[in-house]
Amino acid sequence: MAKKEVDDRFKKFGTVSFTSISKVNDFIDYLEKGKVAGTRCKECGSVFFPPRADCYQCLSSNMEWFEVSGTGKLLAYSKLQYGPVGFEGDLPYCIAVLDYGDYKVFGRIAGELKDEEIKIGMDMKTVVNKLPNGQLNYVFQRA
């Protein structure tokens, strides 16, 4: 089999992806393996989520992956009743930010959680989620 010339793995991220090529395309491979991963600069130790290919602190592009694990605290959230074009089938859904201390994660709250179960400050964990259209993202579940 001929070698694949264009590495467009990133087009698998989210209900609709607006990016196909990125230097952090390995993020998708981690999702496939059930892991949500960020990057850590091997030169200065800076930690990045979402993952970055380049460190603005020390200008290094020498990065290693780490897994987002443990729990974070819910900082803010909102439930959408209307979605952008292409997301109508997912409605309603909640977007949110979790604080892990060293970094924060932006994503969606798991659909099975009821409104009254969601409270700012609650502990949540980030898990990989396969969407009905075969795409991959991650969601926050109660820890």
Partner: peptide, 26 residues
């Protein structure tokens, strides 16, 4: 929605009212 981060946020289906709603909630 694409006025936000299209690589990491727009794939979750974000819109302006939802972002400001997060601030309102907080």
């Amino acid at each position: 929605g694409r006025g936000a981060d299209i690589q990491w946020e727009s794939p979750f289906g974000t819109m302006m009212p939802a972002y400001y709603a997060m601030y309102a909630r907080a």
